[in-house]
Design a protein around this nucleic acid. Structure first.
Length: 425
DNA sequence: TCTGGGGTCCTAGGACCC
DNA sequence: TCTGGGGTCCTAGGACCC
């Protein structure tokens, strides 16, 4: 077995139980206590501490089902606090970028990084140092999986988390036989990019685990499935097909939507809710100097009830704009078209698509000038005082559609008024 | 009673053009 | 009025991810 290899080495750095870890940074008293974080509207469990996993509470379990059990176990439960998690994510990523030659921010709690060094021991030492650094600088524990490709790094990360003796760092073995052995006990659904559907499909073709897929003829996989699966199979063999993307292309669309705290029936109740989501989307446009050339509005009933079901949506292509009032006029018109009366709506939302960079306003109609200045003023005030300093009045009129958030922790790092207070005793 | 939100990529099929 | 094949673009829907 060679401990030196010329293969480039990637690593997947993944924050452990990320949202829970964020909550614990400011609540060290919860270090050994079962902790769970709920989705918006306090609907499902979306992050679990080790203790909660031990209880057997699965990811995505509705809170109303596992709530009693969590209470019996003395668990502490939080509503999700995205400003806090976003801020911690930023800190973790910046720490990685300061230490690693190349970094791809993959999600709020994961990054692919390039690991320097030609020997496994050297790389693992680097990874170990990186792990300690992130923990020291941010308070967030991470796991690191090392491998020559992204798909293998994902699997290595799983082992880093699973194996106690790994202490958060695990390398995919270089030796082909040992690696094959490892892959042969890896079910298809553990592979990044293969969900339940594809796993079933591949099994009927005779591929039962990751080793089978790695050994299969790539052309055959292309034939049976598609190029995505073919690339995954090649990556399982150690042939890189997915490169490290340090810069991501700007998003082409954005969605803002929420479930309501209680069902809504009337257009007059839906408009303020939609107005709030639209305003969030508009803020994104302004922050990133974008305009939208299309808008879609959707609203629907609960997926979980048998009574009247309805999923309505309407869209329109529009002149590229970042004007809040114009967007709102379109959104409300579309809402009106998609709306059916007598239906219990549990969620609505708006999608802005065809996003493009804001052009200098060479064609600015003078009639629009005051409105552009007004928008500029709003953006300025929001940047200085926070987004809630100014909102369209009608969005405040009905609090009915507001989602439940009964367990939210303070926004320790993003609101002056919610800074943690350290007392001397 | 109570079940999240925000994305990407690929494919198939239709419209249209040369 | 008859005749063919191939390319591009767009959209809807499926699958997957965190």
């Amino acid at each position: 077995m060679s401990s030196t290899s010329s293969e480039p080495c990637l690593a997947l750095v993944d924050c452990n139980n990320f949202y829970v870890s964020c909550e614990r940074v400011f609540r060290p008293d919860l270090a050994k206590v079962p902790v769970a974080v709920l989705s918006n509207n306090d609907g499902c469990v979306i992050a679990r501490s080790e203790e909660v996993k031990q209880l057997g509470v699965a990811m995505g379990t509705p809170y109303f089902q596992c709530g009693p059990e969590l209470r019996r176990a003395g668990a502490v439960v939080f509503s999700s606090n995205y400003p806090l998690y976003g801020d911690f994510s930023q800190r973790v990523m910046q720490t990685l970028e300061a230490q690693c030659p190349r970094v791809e921010r993959y999600s709020i709690d994961e990054a692919f990084v390039e690991i320097p060094g030609s020997e496994q021991t050297e790389r693992e030492a680097f990874a170990r140092q990186l792990r300690e650094r992130v923990l020291r600088d941010t308070g967030i524990p991470v796991s690191i999986g090392l491998a020559p490709t992204k798909v293998l790094a994902k699997l290595a990360n799983r082992q880093a988390k699973r194996r106690k003796e790994a202490a958060g760092i695990w390398s995919m073995p270089d030796d082909p036989e040992i690696r094959q052995q490892q892959l042969s006990v890896t079910p298809l659904t553990d592979i990044w990019g293969i969900g339940r559907r594809w796993a079933r499909r591949l099994e009927t073709e005779g591929w039962q685990n990751a080793a089978d897929l790695a050994a299969a003829d790539p052309a055959m996989i292309r034939l049976v499935a598609n190029v995505v699966l073919q690339r995954i199979a090649l990556e399982l063999r150690g042939e890189p097909c997915l490169s490290l993307e340090e810069t991501s292309p700007p998003p082409r669309s954005l969605v803002r939507s929420r479930s309501f705290g209680q069902p809504l029936y009337q257009l007059t109740e839906l408009r303020p809710a939609l107005g709030r989501y639209l305003q969030r989307g508009w803020e994104h446009l302004r922050r990133h100097h974008l305009r939208a050339s299309g808008i879609q509005v959707f609203l629907h009933t609960s997926r979980f009830h048998r009574e009247v079901r309805y999923f309505g949506s309407r869209q329109a292509v529009i002149e590229p704009t970042d004007d809040l009032w114009e967007l709102q006029r379109c959104a409300f018109a579309l809402l009106q078209q998609a709306y059916r009366s007598g239906v219990a709506y549990t969620r609505c939302g708006v999608m802005l698509f065809g996003l493009e960079p804001d052009q200098p306003s060479w064609n600015m109609d003078t009639a629009w000038q005051p409105r552009a200045e007004l928008q500029q003023a709003i953006t300025g005030l929001q940047q200085r005082w926070g987004r809630n300093v100014l909102q369209l009045a009608h969005t405040l009129t009905a609090a009915k559609g507001l989602p439940l958030q009964q367990h939210r922790s303070p926004r320790y790092t993003t609101q002056w008024s919610e800074l943690p207070v350290i007392g001397l005793h």
